[in-house]
Design a protein around this nucleic acid. Structure first.
Lengths: 192, 192
DNA sequence: CTACGATTGTGATGTTTGTCAATTTTATTG
DNA sequence: CAATAAAATTGACAAACATCACAATCGTAG
């Protein structure tokens, strides 16, 4: 059952009690997405967060008619335009299912209410924000410290599963390089 | 008086009560830094956070013997290697005073205690983390969306004061370009 | 004022990566 | 299985930026 997976995930964090979980229960809405369906559209303000039971999403923006990926989400991740949700400003991104997906939806309003009502949820929110920040720092550092080749090799090591589920041209744009450049890079590395 | 400035800042956020503030008071330690003095050294784990009453700091790392700036702090900012403090891992950065500075120091331990004791402080922590995350996202986007010239123009518009307090070669490395490139860029822009 | 160091600017040249156009390989669908 | 679409590769060329070497300017201690 979908809700169970969410609950199991929350329990595993050891941050909230069963009682805290129960608060959310009535506000959860299951939803499915077909591959290529949009979760967030550029220009819209994000009011919903999804916990992914199954499937995958990508976040991308369009510049000069070209799609650039900034983020991938998988099982047990929260799919959300965190930035747009936090600031309540129009999203600069699209979020698209790249596989058929099942998510549990809840609204930002409910989340904020949980933050207000429960110190535990507030802490949960802080830790989520801190974790998200650290991931984003890592990404900045990868751009500052490394060149395209090093970023590729690091990604290969850190998220090998990404390469099984996502085509290379999506990964290239995530790495901040052109798909042609990634292709040449891979040949160079393969040849030694 | 130094503490007053910190208190005024906290009040202005409207997130914590006078009582919440009072909790911190006994743990605050004023300290001065001379220009070029280090606040954080690469390899150390950050246990302290500083509220800046006066002065400026920069965060940089060294790669191939070259310093690269990632961040500047000024009055009413918290100077801290947030990443190292959160994860309690050795810092990858140096933080250096670039002007004589006065800060109010407090420890990460005290902050965590405040988080536990007070829902208000926990919320404060969440909002800080969220804000920091958003700033870091903006920086990532500036690298993905823009070239050196566009990053320069954006910085000029968003933080004009930076250019009055920080030499151009520091700004160049913050923008991710060489100082020569920035110089050429500025000439090109000046000429139209 | 003068001299020195710090900062900024300039020219010549090389490297890296992007762009465009085309082709090959792989996956998907009727 | 053939037809078609999607993904990956390749080569030729252009643009952006780095590097190195040196010159000009600015600010400040003596």
């Amino acid at each position: 059952m979908w809700y169970q997976q969410f609950k199991d995930y929350l329990r595993s964090t050891q941050l909230v009690t069963d009682e805290d979980c129960a608060f959310f229960e009535p506000y959860l809405k299951p939803k499915t997405y077909k591959a290529k369906e949009l979760f967030v559209k550029e220009g819209s303000i994000s009011h919903e967060i999804g916990f992914i039971n199954k499937g995958a999403f990508r976040t991308y923006y369009i510049i000069d008619g070209k799609e650039i990926n900034t983020c991938f989400f998988f099982e047990n991740d929260f799919v959300v335009d965190y930035d747009s949700m936090l600031a309540q400003t129009p999203s600069k991104y699209y979020i698209e299912a790249i596989e058929d997906a099942e998510v549990m939806l809840f609204t930002a309003t409910v989340l904020r209410e949980a933050y207000s009502k429960s110190h535990n949820w507030e802490r949960f929110g802080r830790l989520m924000a801190e974790q998200t920040y650290r991931m984003s720092t890592e990404r900045i550092e990868s751009f500052l410290f490394m060149n395209g080749e090093e970023r590729y090799l690091q990604l290969l090591e850190k998220q090998p599963t990404l390469f099984e589920r996502v085509p290379l041209y999506h990964i290239a744009s995530y790495l901040g390089i052109e798909r042609e450049t990634l292709s040449r890079l891979r040949r160079k590395i393969a040849q030694g």
